[in-house]
Amino acid sequence: MNTDMSIAAAAEPLLLDAALPEFRFSRLECVAIAATPDAVYNAARDLDMLSIHSPLFDAVVWARGVPDRVRRRPVATPPSMRVSDLFDTAGSEDQPWVPLGERAGRELVFGAVGKVWRPTIEWRRVEPGDFAGFEEPGWAKMAAAFVVHPYGAQRSLLTYEARTACTDPESTTRFGRYWTLVSPGVGIVLRGALRVIEKAAETGERIS
Rank of each mutant, 00 (worst) to 15 (best):
G65H: 00
V113G: 01
R206F: 05
A104C: 03
P96S: 01
T164E: 09
V31Y: 03
K199D: 06
V109E: 02
L50V: 06
R64L: 07
K199S: 09
L16H: 00
V31E: 13
S84M: 11
Q95K: 08
L194K: 04
G65F: 06
D58R: 15
P13L: 12
A8Y: 01
A162D: 00
V60Q: 10
E198Q: 14
A140L: 01
F23H: 10
L108V: 09
D38K: 08
W123F: 15
V31R: 09
Y160F: 15
S84E: 11
D17L: 10
F87V: 09
V182Y: 02
Q154D: 12
N2V: 03
E202I: 01
E12A: 14
P21C: 02
T203L: 04
E170T: 14
S171A: 15
F134G: 02
P169Y: 07
A165W: 05
P74R: 01
V66D: 02
R177Y: 14
L86T: 05
L47G: 07
V60F: 14
F146W: 08
A34V: 09
T180W: 11
R191M: 09
L50S: 03
V109F: 00
V182K: 03
W123S: 10
D168T: 14
E29T: 13
S208E: 12
V83M: 12
L28C: 10
A11N: 14
A11G: 09
K115R: 15
T89Q: 09
P78R: 14
M5H: 11
P137Y: 14
G187D: 01
A145Q: 11
L158M: 08
A145S: 14
G114K: 03
A104S: 13
I52Y: 03
V61N: 13
A19H: 02
K199R: 15
M142H: 11
A35Y: 00
H53Q: 07
A145N: 11
A145L: 04
P55M: 05
E127C: 07
A18F: 05
P79V: 15
P67L: 05
